[in-house]
Simulated scan of single mutants.
Amino acid sequence: MTAVDYGPRRPAVPRYSVTRRQREALLWIARGRTAQQAGRRMGISLNTVNSLLAGLYRKLGASTGPHAVALAMARGLIAPADIEPPHARHSALQSPPGPRNPTGA
């Protein structure tokens, strides 16, 4: 029996050419903003945001915003620290207030 040559192998780890704007749009979605809100914050139209996200979803193999966020995080394209607003990280480090004394003493 002879070996079959299937041609060159694909790399084990796919490469993503995610643009800066695609990543920015995804981060707004990850922060719970709508595409329209992301467009306002980015200074671009809703159609442009949808086009950026559609291209990104194709690259990642995602079908929804949350799916794209999960895949991007799993692949190291975004980190949890990228999603949290800076004030959320600082408030998490503060200790909660102690118990109140109901007698006022």
Rank of each mutant, 00 (worst) to 15 (best):
M1Y: 11
T2V: 12
A3R: 04
V4K: 05
V4Q: 08
R9A: 15
R9E: 15
R10Y: 10
P11G: 01
P14F: 13
P14E: 10
R15W: 08
S17P: 00
S17C: 02
T19Y: 04
R20Q: 13
R21L: 13
W28E: 12
W28T: 03
A30S: 10
A30R: 01
R33A: 12
A35V: 02
A35Q: 13
Q37E: 14
Q37R: 11
I44F: 08
S45C: 08
L46H: 12
T48S: 09
L52T: 00
L53T: 11
A54G: 09
G55E: 05
L56E: 04
R58D: 15
K59Q: 15
G61Y: 12
G61P: 08
A62K: 02
A62F: 08
S63P: 00
T64I: 07
H67C: 04
A68R: 02
V69C: 09
L71T: 14
A72M: 04
A72I: 08
L77Y: 06
L77N: 09
I78F: 11
P80S: 01
P80L: 05
A81K: 09
A81H: 09
A81M: 04
D82H: 00
D82Q: 03
P86M: 02
H87F: 13
A88E: 05
A88S: 05
H90G: 01
H90Y: 08
S91Y: 08
A92T: 03
L93C: 00
P96D: 03
P97Q: 06
G98L: 14
G98Y: 02
R100Y: 05
A105K: 04
A105W: 05
